[in-house]
């Protein structure tokens, strides 16, 4: 009894902790279940009972409605996948190619070049001038590049990568040089293959940044063909709210001969499920590497 008393908490305390964690865990996950449950409920039941965790009357009508015309959803998936893939590939290579020279002790001007990156973490020009640079100066309104370029390079990741590269023994670089390898070859065949953990971590974070981004679309995109998945979800929420709050618009739809009645409540939630589906299935995989990445990232850059 005494032995236990010193090296572990009282069983009752331990049980209490478990109860608290189980409750909090439920709190973290359960909102998703509510959304999924509503999306599979019959619209009239929802209107009568409100959102419930257990559908009183099961229905897949919301999904049928959404996929009756799935062009926009598929297109948005395409935009998001294209932007995420391009952005991550380009971004990780660019960051690595900036961080590697910075990690070299013999590079002239590495101090100012590091400060050049670091300064952007301290001071920024604010939203208005950023917006004007992209819209007026670069003319990227309604261009997918306006979704890619702003998130391409994260100063913090460059500094973290530099720390990682610094720990690679410089003898390897010297040896490669003696064998006649150029700088690009050294970076590509010696340094980067040895740095897969950090490159993968940065890539995962970058993927998530791109996948979850809606702000750049909010700023720059008005063309329906270039709406990303997150932005489509945002617009769905907005439009349905507009239709339900605006009786004139609803009447307009009814008079327009549209036989389809808008199952607004369930469609909204179905849209959310369609939007988060794949990323939730990727979560267990992501989470493991995220935690590992946090540990690598915690080493000061």
């Amino acid at each position: 009894m005494l032995k236990r008393g010193l090296n572990s908490v009282h069983p009752a305390t331990g049980a209490l902790f478990h109860i608290i964690f189980i409750l909090y865990t439920i709190l973290c996950i359960v909102p998703i279940f509510l959304v999924v449950a509503v999306s599979f409920t019959d619209e009239l039941t929802v209107v009568a009972n409100g959102y419930q965790f257990i559908p009183e009357k099961f229905s897949t009508y919301a999904y049928e409605f959404l996929f009756k015309d799935s062009t926009q959803i598929l297109r948005s998936y395409g935009v998001t996948i294209l932007v995420t893939a391009t952005g991550t590939l380009l971004g990780v290579s660019m960051m690595a190619m900036y961080a590697y020279p910075l990690s070299r002790n013999d590079l002239p001007f590495r101090g100012p070049l590091a400060f050049f990156v670091f300064f952007t973490m301290l001071f920024n020009g604010g939203l208005v001038s950023f917006y004007l640079v992209y819209v007026r100066f670069l003319g990227l309104k309604n261009s997918l590049w306006a979704l890619i370029l702003p998130l391409l390079v994260a100063p913090f990741f460059i500094l973290v990568m530099r720390t990682f590269f610094k720990n690679i023994p410089s003898e390897l670089i010297e040896a490669a040089k003696i064998d006649g390898a150029g700088e690009f070859r050294i970076a590509g065949t010696v340094i980067f293959p040895l740095s897969v953990p950090i490159l993968a971590t940065v890539a995962l974070f970058t993927v998530l940044n791109y996948w979850n981004d809606w702000f750049m679309s909010l700023l720059f995109i008005s063309d329906d063909k270039k709406v990303s998945l997150q932005y489509l979800m945002y617009k769905t929420m907005l439009n349905i709210q507009y239709l339900t709050s605006n009786t004139q618009a609803a009447q307009g739809i009814a008079q327009g001969g549209s036989a389809v009645e808008l199952p607004s409540e369930t469609v909204r939630m179905a849209m959310c499920v369609v939007g988060i589906g794949p990323i939730v299935f990727a979560y267990p995989f992501f989470q493991r590497y995220f935690v590992k990445g946090l540990l690598i990232g915690a080493i000061k850059g």
Partner: peptide
């Protein structure tokens, strides 16, 4: 483009 031009734009 992303950071220094906007600073000038202040």
């Amino acid at each position: 483009i992303n950071n220094y031009l906007p600073i000038a734009g202040l």
